[in-house]
Amino acid sequence: MQNLFKLLLVVLALGSIIDSSTRLLAQSEQPTQAALRARISHDLPGWLKQYNVPSASVAYIANGRLAWTVVIGEQSPGVPATDKTLYNIASLTKPIVAETILRMASQNKLQLDEPIYPYWVDPDIKNNPWSKLLTPRLCLSHQTGFANWRRMTNGILTFKFKPGTQSGYSGEGFFYLARFAQNKTGQPFDQLAQNEVFGPMGMKDTSFTSQNWFNGRLAQPYTNSGFLPPALTSTWNAADLVETTITDYGHFVASVMRNEGISPAIAAERLIITRDWTSEDAREQACTHETPGTACHISAGMGLGWQVIVHNGVTIVDHSGSDTGVNTHAFFIPSKLTGAVVFTNGENGSKVIGEIIHVLSSDPVYAATVSH
């Protein structure tokens, strides 16, 4: 199972994907909601066939609310996907964990800069003094120093760098954070998420763990070798494997964008780039997709639980996810109150996502740099 972080500004050769009509659409006045939905409905079946992806579910957010969804394809052999289909959202689990923590911090149930070690120290690092440097903020902004997974370091959790001095994407960091919150409150982390996020947002079709109501609703992962059994778990995973519907997650992203349930101070902190990781080469490549005659200024890095991109003064917030046979993506633009979520159950789903973002994003540079 893969959970590899896709840096926004690793620009891939787009080739035929960005044809002249797509460029004209990106540069023209933004189409209406109805026109966008019609185009996705019309083009998505062809993209699924072209890239050998069984299904895709798309949610579009406008005016800060879920505006529409489109679901096309098969969730499993011979079974059509619907807006009730449950997808493994892979690393889009992490924004849910982040929102749980930020809401708790807004209620003073924990502090973003408090030390974690009084409540949790992993046995693998108990003798390392750097363990006392870890805080919720460092976990949320991927500054723990941990590898993505401890299996990448011979099954032992260890520091690759001193916490707070560099950035390095880490699912282990989110596990560490969730164990801290669980131990501090005395409640299982999935229950904390239910109390802080799923319940208040009305997310009744979302779960960290396998449930009886999953029956007949699961999108099976798909590779070029065929369908695979769904990856299910009986214990919560703070970095992966949440199952949800496109409708639930669309409402979730809209609520995050509206800053519901968090304080103004924390809402502002969420969108601060901790460490700009865009190289000069990445900037130059990204800006080749800028509208001719327009200056191009772009930076990107981690905020609190989300990647934050600032392009010509406009902030775009996003996250992606991938497991074997699964690709997902979500983004929103706070100043425009727009955004989108895409779930796919295919190995080549990132290519379908790229096509969809070209239609739904009004920013040609962002659309061009989303993994496809």
Rank of each mutant, 00 (worst) to 15 (best):
N3I: 04
N3W: 09
K6I: 05
L12N: 11
S16G: 13
I18F: 08
D19P: 01
D19V: 03
A26K: 11
Q30N: 10
A35Y: 06
R37W: 05
P45Q: 08
G64W: 03
G73F: 00
Q75K: 15
S76C: 10
P80L: 14
T85G: 07
L86R: 10
L86V: 10
A90T: 07
K94F: 05
P95L: 09
A105N: 09
S106V: 06
S106Y: 12
Q107W: 01
N108R: 12
N108Y: 07
L110V: 14
L110A: 14
P118A: 04
I125G: 08
K132N: 12
L134F: 02
L140G: 00
Q143K: 12
G145Q: 02
F146P: 00
I156D: 05
L157E: 10
F159Q: 08
F159L: 00
K160S: 14
F161L: 07
L177H: 01
L177Y: 04
L177E: 02
T185Q: 13
F189I: 11
Q191K: 15
A193K: 13
Q194M: 05
Q194T: 14
E196Q: 15
M201E: 13
T206E: 03
N212D: 12
W213K: 10
A219F: 06
N224E: 10
P229N: 15
A238K: 04
A239S: 15
L241C: 03
T244P: 11
I246E: 07
E260W: 05
G261E: 02
R270F: 01
R270P: 03
D276Q: 06
S279R: 07
E284H: 11
C287I: 01
C287Q: 01
P292H: 07
C296S: 04
G303L: 09
G303I: 05
H311K: 03
T315V: 11
D323E: 11
T324I: 10
V326C: 04
T328Q: 04
H329R: 13
F332I: 00
A340K: 00
V341S: 05
V341H: 13
V342D: 04
G354L: 00
H358R: 15
A367I: 13
V370I: 15
S371Q: 13
